[in-house]
Structures are given as structure tokens and as C-alpha cells.
Design a binder for these strands. Structure first.
Lengths: 68, 68
DNA sequence: ACATGATGTTAGATATATATAACATAATAA
DNA sequence: TTATTATGTTATATATATCTAACATCATGT
């Protein structure tokens, strides 16, 4: 699974820590999400998307390996 | 958080168990999801949405309590 | 009424997301 | 260079999603 978090974060000139604070998680959590190191909960995905002015389906890009 | 899983499942005339099998989870997991009893992972949300021919943002409806 | 299939619900086990703290590295500015 | 800020990256702890099995309830058909 890939994500556009980093790209959108840059567009808002927002640091990982600032996004984490807005969303209510740790900075490392955002870092790991950006690196695809884990699979967030739906609510977290929603909060991040909303904070970055987009939707879940726009923010995360799934590939075939996510289906198996 | 609310969901349209049950509604779409009915439209496809699909039982909880059949959906669970297609998605690769237990029947109870689908039941709990329909009841809003927990917050799925993003990948699971994606698989359910894809199996039901829709998107995550169409399938799940968030309310204010999901943001706090 | 009885049988059967679908769903509800509980309790305990396991897997994994997230928190926390600590330290490393990168980049940029002074 | 040094200082500072942002990000990377571990390791361990905690919270919670999901599994599993078992039994209950509900609906429908016979």
C-alpha cells in the first residue's frame, strides 16, 4: 500500500509532528505510515485524509498485494 | 462510524459468511463491522469495499465522534 | 412444532497497530 | 563548525483488531 501523505503534507507545508498533533497520534506513527510500514485503522486513515483535505480513497493507493 | 455493508451485501444477496470468505476474515468479523463494534484496518476496509463493488469512502460513514 | 440456515453475542487467545522513549541521521541556518 | 529542526529507526510496552469456538436467537420452510 502506498500513500500520498508526504506529498500532501508538503503541499500544506506541514511537518510530520504538526500533522501528528492535529490527528492525535505520535510523530513516528505518521512516519511509519508514510513509509508504508503499517496498515492504519480506518478511523486514523479518515482523520489523516480529512486533515489533509482529501478522502481516504485519494490518499491511499492499494496494489494487488493488499488483496491476497 | 456507520457502514453500508449490510445494505450492499443484501443487494448482492450475499450472506455474512460468504462475504467473510471472499474477504478472508471470519463471519463474526463481518457481523461486528456491520454493528459498528469495531474499527477495521484500512486494508480490510478496502477488501470489503472492493468485494461489494464500491469504495471505502462510500462504504463507511463517519460522524463527529470519529474525529475526537 | 420442528428443522435449518443466518445472524447475534460472549469469552479467551493471538496478531498487530500505536505509544513511548531513546538515539541516529539529514538538512538547513547561523 | 555548531545549533537546531525534521525525519529515520530501533526496542519494548500497551491497546485493540481479529481469530476461534461455542452457544443463543431469529427467520423461514416444511
Amino acid at each position: 500500500m502506498k500513500t500520498r501523505i508526504k506529498e500532501l503534507r508538503a503541499r500544506y507545508d506541514m511537518t510530520q509532528e504538526k500533522l501528528a498533533n492535529k490527528v492525535g497520534v505520535r510523530r513516528e506513527t505518521i512516519g511509519f505510515l508514510e513509509k508504508g510500514k503499517y496498515n492504519p485503522s480506518l478511523k486514523l486513515a479518515y482523520k489523516v485524509a480529512k486533515t489533509l483535505g482529501t478522502t481516504i480513497d485519494e490518499l491511499f493507493i492499494f496494489d494487488e498485494s493488499d488483496i491476497e
